[in-house]
């Protein structure tokens, strides 16, 4: 935001066809952290898209003879089990990759949904103001007053959890934050002169919300969203651990950790 309002002399010539956001991205790209992060992200996307074709059913195949193999860098480990095997002799690397893929998928899908839902409600609420705003904000208050975990164990613990219900729970508990942020940014944006200018040339409310306000509030909210993907992945793991995540035999981080726990503590 600060970039957009900085004085013009910073940029000698008008930059052709290049937005402020593009320039921030290009600047960020120069940092090594950004490169590493992008590479990891790309790898995750590839795993999500092509993982199922490469990883075969052996990930869930039980082979008691091979149980509790240590990773190959420890004594007793053997190929092809690079990270060893679990209590049922299943390959841990493969299981982790599948778990990672599922977690990533759930994280991304739920964040995209809560992002869209939350922003739409938040922008509408903030732009409209008045009673619409009061009612919508009280609804977000109610939603925010139910802790995620309570909602999750209530819904998931009672039904048979699958990726769809898990995403539904995450979206249900996650959208109010986006609505809050979108609303507060909209309230500030609504005061700005470009919104007034748009109304004066006759732009409709919908047009102002979609074409003018939405683009300017996305950057700060997108930042929240990126961090939230990680949070949702962690929730997925927690659900799995408690036993309200994706059900066995499909591996998840949570079930892998839970599976190892008993043996670890008895060791």
């Amino acid at each position: 935001m600060a970039i957009a309002s900085s004085p013009p002399q910073t940029f000698a010539a008008p930059a052709r066809g290049q937005s402020v956001n593009a320039r921030i991205l290009r600047l960020a790209w120069r940092s090594p952290e950004m490169k590493v992060a992008s590479a990891l992200f790309l790898a995750l996307c590839l795993l999500t898209l092509f993982g199922p074709f490469v990883i075969d059913a052996s990930a869930t195949k039980i082979s008691v003879a091979d149980k509790f193999l240590p990773p190959i860098f420890m004594e007793g480990g053997k190929l092809p089990h690079i990270l060893g095997t679990d209590q049922l002799g299943r390959d841990l690397l493969l299981r982790s990759l599948i778990g990672l893929r599922n977690a990533f998928l759930i994280g991304v899908v739920s964040v995209v949904l809560m992002f869209v839902l939350g922003c739409a409600i938040g922008i509408y609420s903030g732009y409209r103001g008045g009673w619409t705003d009061v009612v919508l904000m009280r609804i977000t208050d109610i939603q925010m007053s139910i802790p995620v975990i309570i909602l999750a164990i209530t819904i998931l613990g009672m039904s048979r959890p699958n990726p769809v219900t898990i995403i539904a729970v995450l979206v249900l508990s996650g959208w109010p934050i986006y609505a809050r942020v979108a609303r507060s940014v909209t309230l500030a944006e609504r005061q700005k002169e470009y919104v007034r200018a748009a109304r004066i040339i006759g732009a409709s409310d919908l047009r102002i919300m979609v074409r003018h306000i939405a683009p300017s509030i996305l950057p700060p909210i997108a930042f929240v969203a990126v961090l939230d993907v990680a949070r949702m992945m962690i929730f997925e793991a927690i659900f799995g651990f408690i036993g309200i995540g994706i059900q066995p035999p499909t591996p998840t981080f949570g079930t892998i950790i839970a599976g190892g726990t008993q043996y670890l503590l008895n060791a």
């Binding site: 793991a237 839970a258 726990t261 670890l264 503590l265």
Partner: peptide
């Protein structure tokens, strides 16, 4: 730390501080 699930941290701490070393009680 933000990318570590608390269940994982919990298990690892139980293992390191309790099960393996016996320094602290856990369960």
């Amino acid at each position: 730390f933000v990318s570590l699930p608390n269940v994982w941290v919990g298990i690892v701490l139980i293992y390191l501080l309790s099960a393996r070393t016996g320094w602290l009680p856990a369960i």
